[in-house]
């Protein structure tokens, strides 16, 4: 059970004079149950890359394998793949269209041709998982707040019971509270279901706390693919490509340079506090 990307390349608008290579020879393996942060500057190709994983975009060359099967095979069922690899786009609330929230969440499982009972059961479960209050279920999706709408949209994908969940900038445009709600919701999902989650973001700070592997993209190339701790040792290089390590990394490195014996691999504020306290004691 895994996703394998094998030397994929993708070029936009071939033969129009506006050609641009968005993905350059990227290979990786994603195992079951991983929580991955995919990070890159705007235009680095991360959104394009994730669309390869559920077959919405076909690589110009190279292949993607899902559970050992080539998804570009002629008789491969892309619709099933899309239910297994759930993709939540950026600003997913812009895709809500039904008259009430519950119906909107039913859209996905209904498209899978499931019986009505199963569809509604899944919709309830998905809405419960994203933590939406039950009295909202039959309201119009357009009456909700931004954060609520986004959770409904995420539920819309969850209701298909994907094995892998990919979210493109799920916190973009939300206030700090809405952002924390979404991220906590993802952490809960991970613990509850054990599904593989790929979180696309341009903010290290958001991602560092939650994921156990980070992939950094720059200009269509997969630059780093490692644990957060190892990634942040490259914080100078990350700066050069317009990204930044968490603030904690900077403080810890500065302290180390000032002669304190602290752990520069600390990622969260709590870890940093512990390490600093230990060194001054």
């Amino acid at each position: 059970m895994s996703i394998i990307a094998d030397h994929i390349n993708y070029t936009y608008e071939i033969g129009t004079g506006f050609e641009r290579q968005a993905i350059k020879d990227i290979s990786f393996v994603i195992e079951d149950g991983e929580f991955i942060g995919l990070i890159g500057h705007t235009g680095s190709g991360k959104s394009t890359l994730i669309q390869h994983l559920n077959g919405l975009v076909k690589a110009t060359s190279g292949t993607v394998y899902y559970n050992g099967q080539d998804i570009y095979d002629k008789d491969y069922d892309l619709k099933t793949l899309r239910s297994k690899v759930g993709l939540v786009f950026q600003y997913p609330e812009h895709q809500l269209f039904e008259t009430d929230i519950f119906k909107d969440v039913c859209f996905g499982p209904k498209n899978l041709g499931l019986p009505k009972m199963e569809v509604e059961l899944r919709a309830f479960e998905a809405l419960r998982m994203v933590g939406l209050e039950e009295n909202l279920y039959y309201q119009s999706p357009f009456d909700l707040s931004g954060g609520q709408k986004r959770r409904v949209a995420i539920a819309g994908v969850l209701a298909m019971k994907p094995e892998v969940l990919i979210l493109d900038e799920p916190t973009a445009g939300l206030d700090p509270k809405g952002r924390d709600d979404i991220l906590e919701c993802l952490r809960y999902l991970k613990e509850e279901t054990g599904m593989t989650i790929i979180l696309v973001s341009h903010s290290m700070e958001d991602v560092a706390k939650y994921v156990n592997r980070i992939m950094v993209m720059n200009d269509g190339v997969l630059m780093y693919d490692d644990t957060p701790k190892n990634i942040f040792t490259h914080y100078r290089e990350l700066e050069e490509i317009g990204l930044a390590a968490p603030q904690v990394t900077y403080i810890m490195n500065d302290l180390k340079n000032a002669g304190f014996d602290v752990n520069t691999g600390a990622i969260t504020v709590d870890e940093a506090v512990e390490s600093i306290m230990a060194s001054v004691r």
């Binding site: 899309r82 812009h94 859209f107 996905g108």
Partner: peptide
């Protein structure tokens, strides 16, 4: 294009 892709991702046909 974006909306169509998003609905495709939700199994639309």
């Amino acid at each position: 294009d974006k909306i169509m892709k998003a609905q495709l991702a939700r199994g639309a046909d």
